[in-house]
């Protein structure tokens, strides 16, 4: 029953994809009018004017280009022409660094806030004000103080991924079932051991959910941050290809951003499943 459901769902997915690609292909076919002009003028005008080709690349163009990229993901022909693999690696490294720093700060801090009603009340106004700030708004301040564009991008990732983790950790720690804490208390378990043997496992699913939200936001923000910072990364690649008017490369980059984002989310989802306990 469930396999047949999966099979049918897969079939529908394939049909939808085929329909989308088909419509895309039809919509970008060469149907425009061509005008006759002098060859030199035609060179300036490009294929749209001379052959009636759509300015928007079709799925076949994108597929061919994608294959080219996949064949050579790591070439490096200088600052403006690097393989997609290198660009993605830069982005993932920045996200990873900023995100891990945020984990190191948010989870211990969230633990403290969650366990201490005083800290929770005292820090609440700061968190409430800092949380809704768009991470990119920090960029000028980061560039001015850090004076390094690459580190600034990491800082922006750090600041955007810290909030969901912090708030979820606080919530998870503060809402650990009283009876589990009481079990530890009646067994005279010390605070540190209690934190690791009762509160951490009980709050782990909530904390991991926060981490999963954070990695998603970090991956959203890195593209924008790299467009501003420039130099390397998939966000820079998108902007550079837009300046090159290579819509094909832009579409490929969009596709890859989606795939990498999905993979990051799936990794965190797997971790979440590992720590989730049935009740």
């Amino acid at each position: 029953m469930s396999t047949s459901l999966r099979l049918r769902a897969g079939l529908v997915s394939i049909v939808l994809l085929a329909a989308f690609l088909g419509i895309w292909h039809l919509a970008t076919r060469s149907t425009g009018t061509t005008t006759t002009m002098s060859p030199e003028y035609a060179k300036l005008m490009g294929l749209t004017a001379t052959q009636g080709k759509s300015a928007m690349p079709g799925p076949l163009d994108v597929g061919a280009k994608l294959w080219e990229h996949l064949k050579r993901p790591f070439y490096d022909n200088g600052p403006n022409d690097k393989g997609l693999g290198i660009q993605l690696a830069y982005s993932i490294a920045r996200v990873g660094t900023g995100y891990l720093l945020a984990v190191l700060v948010a989870i211990p801090l969230g633990f403290l806030i969650g366990m201490s009603p005083l800290l929770s009340k005292a820090l609440d106004p700061f968190i409430q004000v800092l949380k809704p700030i768009s991470p990119l708004a920090w960029m000028p301040l980061a560039l001015y103080t850090i004076k390094d564009s690459s580190v600034s991008a990491i800082f922006v990732i750090f600041i955007c991924s810290i909030w969901p983790m912090l708030l979820n950790t606080v919530f998870g720690v503060a809402s650990v079932r009283k009876e589990w804490v009481n079990v530890a208390r009646t067994l005279e378990v010390g605070t540190v051991r209690r934190a690791f043997t009762v509160i951490l496992p009980a709050a782990a699913p909530t904390i991991l959910t926060g981490m999963r939200i954070s990695i998603g936001i970090a991956w959203l923000v890195i593209v924008a941050a790299e467009m501003l910072v420039g130099g390397t990364g998939i966000g820079y690649f998108v902007w550079n290809e837009w300046n090159n008017l290579s819509i094909t490369n832009v579409i490929i980059a969009i596709l890859l951003i989606g795939v990498v984002g999905m993979l990051l989310d799936q990794i965190l989802a797997r971790f979440t499943r590992m720590v989730t306990f049935p009740e």
Binding site: E179, W180, N182, V183, P201, A202, V275, F277, P278
Partner: peptide, 8 residues
């Protein structure tokens, strides 16, 4: 009353 076992 609620047995309070650690489910993990």
């Amino acid at each position: 009353q609620s047995h309070a076992l650690l489910p993990w």
